[in-house]
Every structure is written in structure tokens, then in C-alpha cells.
Design a protein around this nucleic acid. Structure first.
Lengths: 116, 116
DNA sequence: GGGACTATATGCTCAACGCACATAGACGGG
DNA sequence: CCCGTCTATGTGCGTTGAGCATATAGTCCC
């Protein structure tokens, strides 16, 4: 079989990477991901719920995340829990490396050391 | 007048940021931008010329870049030269800061220190 | 019992991109 | 001189992803 290539998923859309980052700490359900992303993005345009759930569906199709069958007891029945797949971890890492390289370029080209 | 807000352009698409980065070193023409972006992206899917020129047109409309009237003497007549506007610099900086924050999160969540 | 919040999902529209293709000048080898 | 390749910019067409509104319903607490 042909090897899986993380590069074929790179670059991720900004939203997709935000979601994978939200799941990097461990399994989580959609609404919490929404809150995590919005909290980290600060004052920027808030992520709409509809946008998030569709993005989750795409990531599921691509097998970058998967849904958990089991859930914590006593939990809200409506929630759907997700976690990163091995593939998702590999892709998130590859994307993080790409971004780190861009930051390095930005620094080398004097975009970071300057007035706000 | 209402202040210009760089945040309203954030997040940039990966391609838009690549182009602004290519121009961070100084004025450049389209084809060289194409080569710079493709060189920096390594083995990833190469940027197609058509995609680039349309992206340049968008950045012009948004006034993140502007075309130079003057060109170096003895230059290929067909070339069109572009440079960052002040707005473009501000937006590129804001995006670079956003990405740096994401990298920091990725590290904090143990996405960077691990196998390739 | 009523309003705010939690939780997931679909409908509609538009912007951005991938890829194919068009056009044409430059440039070097045979 | 001609031909292929590279340089250089651009348009046509279809698909994907995202923004925003809206739908639905359970929870939580006053």
C-alpha cells in the first residue's frame, strides 16, 4: 500500500489547525472546542457554531479525528466527543512545523521586531 | 474616520501570507514570488501560476500590496513589480503574531517535541 | 415557567483555490 | 533559423471551505 503522506494535507486551513490544536490536550466535545478556539483567538471574529460542526464533519471524513464511543458517565447525552487520530497528530505536527518555518522566515525578513 | 484594523484581515489564507512573506524582503515581480514561495514550501504541492496571479489581484484590491510604477532599467518589459503597503506590513505582522501564538500553544500541548 | 446557555446541525451564499488552458516574449542549442 | 524550454501574465471552470442565519432541543437556575 502507498504510504500515508501528511504533506498532502498541508497547508491546513486556519480553522482546521485551530480545531486540531484544541484536541491536542485530549478528547473533547464540539461545544468545548468552540469555546477553546474562541478563547484562544482573543478579540478576533468569533467562530460560529455552524462553521465548527461542519469543519468537524470534514475532519472526521479525512480521519484526522474520530468520535469516541465511550463517554464519561453522568455526562450530557447530547455531546459528541472527538479525539485526534494518529494521522491527525502527524498532520498537526507537520502543519506546526510548516508554521514554525514561516515564523522563522518572518523573523529573518524583519517582520516581527517592530512597532505593533 | 474609523481606525484601520489589521485584525479584520486575520487570519490570512496560507497563500496570502506566503505572498506577503515573499514581499517582506522588498519589491518583487509575480514570477519571482512564485519561485520564492515554491522554494520555501519544499516538497509540498507546488503553487500554480494561475492561483498566484489571482491572489495578487485580491491583495491589490485590499491594498495590502501595490504595484510599482518605476522598474529597474534593462528589465523584462512583461514583469509587474509589487511591494507591501504599510497596511500590508501591519497585517503581515499581525498574522505572524497569531501564528507565533499558535506555535506556542502547539508546544504547550506537546505537539512539537516528538517523532517526525 | 421563562430566559439564557449548552449542544448539534442544515440552508444559502460567496470567496478562495486547484487545475487546465491561453498568450506571448526571451533564450539557447543544434 | 527554428524549435523547445523557460519566463511571465492572465482567464475559464468546477470544487471546497467558510460566514451567517436559522432550526431544534435539552439544561440550568432564578
Amino acid at each position: 500500500m502507498d504510504r500515508f503522506r501528511a504533506e498532502s494535507f498541508i497547508p491546513l486551513t486556519p480553522l482546521a489547525f485551530d480545531i486540531l490544536l484544541a484536541l491536542a490536550e485530549g478528547e473533547q466535545h464540539g461545544y468545548r472546542i468552540l469555546q477553546d478556539v474562541n478563547a484562544r483567538s482573543g478579540n478576533a471574529a468569533p467562530l460560529h457554531a455552524g462553521t465548527l460542526y461542519r469543519a468537524l464533519a470534514r475532519l472526521l471524513e479525512q480521519a484526522l479525528i474520530e468520535e469516541l464511543a465511550e463517554r464519561p458517565a453522568e455526562d450530557d447525552e447530547r455531546r459528541r466527543y472527538y479525539q485526534l487520530t494518529e494521522r491527525g497528530i502527524a498532520v498537526a505536527r507537520a502543519e506546526a512545523r510548516r508554521l514554525a518555518a514561516q515564523i522563522a522566515t518572518a523573523e529573518a525578513r524583519h517582520l516581527l521586531r517592530a512597532p505593533a
